[in-house]
Amino acid sequence: MSGSSSQGSLHALADRWLPKLVLSPTLAASLIFVYGFIAWTGWLSFTESRLMPRYEWAGFVQYQALFENERWWTAAANLGLFGGLFILFCLLVGLLMAVLLDQKIRAEGMLRTIYLYPMALSFVVTGTAWKWMLNPDMGLQKVVVDLGFTDFTFDWLVNPDMAIYTVVIAGVWQSSGFVMALFLAGLRGIDDSIIKAAQVDGASLPTIYRRILIPSLRPVFFSVLLILSHIAIKSFDLVMALTGGGPGNSSDVPAIFMYQFAFTRGQLGVGAASAMMMLFTIVAVLVPLMYMETRSAKRV
């Protein structure tokens, strides 16, 4: 009897401590490797660091150098353009595909897999494939010209004013399937009886979607925005593979800027300052979003 009771207390002890024990390495690792390094980068951004880290305080000189750099503003403007359009089109295309797939059509499973498949590719593959397709000398333009439409031009990839939009195209192609999957899951989670009740009340299908289904997808919108906005802000590999930041530096984004200044130009301080600016951008987008999401969750 006494054996089983001590076993019970052992169980209780394990129940209390085991989860914490198992989680602690992960917690320690993320404290050091995420928050620790964020703090280190923040510190470096206030020093005179050039080729290698140095730790004398230098105030805001690196931020000043950053804000005087025209290339930084090109990168920042491109991020705004790319981020805005990328998120907008991913939401629109994803939602549309989800609604269409939701119509209990045949072969839905297959279609869903096809649309979701780009998600399985890395951004490097997406970028390289689209680079070939958009290249005026061997891609889409050449195909259409060879078909006989000799006036056709589609040279966005090599046009400094339009190159950033090709990144939007490739990004939307890659990510909208994933957005669709999230929305579809959200739609399927809605109680059928609500729809039936609406139908009994005589609401048409578009009205049901507009007034009932899409508004109840509100939490899904938050998750999607959360995921897409951080994909947009940290985007590096897609731009690198597709345009390399070019032509010139017309499709530069902050992540590429940061990498080049910190690691190839011996301006670690400026690189660290731009990394901090990226962090602030993420915080500025995510904190209100998360606040609104938790508030709406409480209300429900």
Binding site: R71, G248, S250, F261, Q267
Partner: peptide, 15 residues
């Protein structure tokens, strides 16, 4: 740092 800044200008001029 100087080289990078100059190359930025040149490639912007080219494009």
């Amino acid at each position: 740092a100087t080289e990078g800044a100059m190359v930025d200008v040149i490639s912007q001029f080219m494009n």
